[in-house]
Design a protein around this nucleic acid. Structure first.
Length: 112
DNA sequence: GACCTGACGCCCC
DNA sequence: AGGGGCGCCAGGT
């Protein structure tokens, strides 16, 4: 019953589903999973290096669109660089046009 | 085993 | 409109 590892996997899985050029929030992931809290999502992503697969953790920001996790990347600017490489404009550590680029995992169910 | 802290978010003033 | 308080769950000290 590796429930914890299962939770990790769920967080990683949802994070990998975020489309390129879009962003989601810690709260949206926690809301979609219906488990734990937004803090737990951040806690899980904090250990994403623990996973073998590459997690696009740079697409997860806080509800204001701020790059609150940027300091946990290899370099403080890596998160912003990855986002801008996908066409996401970042201004002063915040995602520009957050409302337009925000993606909720629930959209997957709506399409179906 | 109690206490603090954290890649958050909602409610209240 | 901006700022502060509290809940959240797990790990580290």
């Amino acid at each position: 019953m590796p429930q914890k590892d299962h939770y990790f996997s769920r967080v990683y899985d949802v994070t990998c589903l975020v489309p390129q050029g879009r962003v989601t929030t810690y709260g949206a992931i926690a809301d979609y999973l219906g488990l734990g809290s937004a803090r737990m999502v951040g806690w899980a992503l904090n250990h994403c290096h623990h996973s073998d697969i590459v997690i696009p953790a740079h697409r997860v920001v806080n509800r204001l669109g701020e790059l609150s996790g940027r300091l946990h990347f290899a370099t403080p600017t890596l998160m912003q660089e990855r986002l801008e490489a996908e066409g996401v404009k970042v201004d002063d550590n915040k995602v520009a046009e957050m409302d337009r680029l925000f993606w909720h995992p629930r959209e997957l169910d709506e399409i179906l």
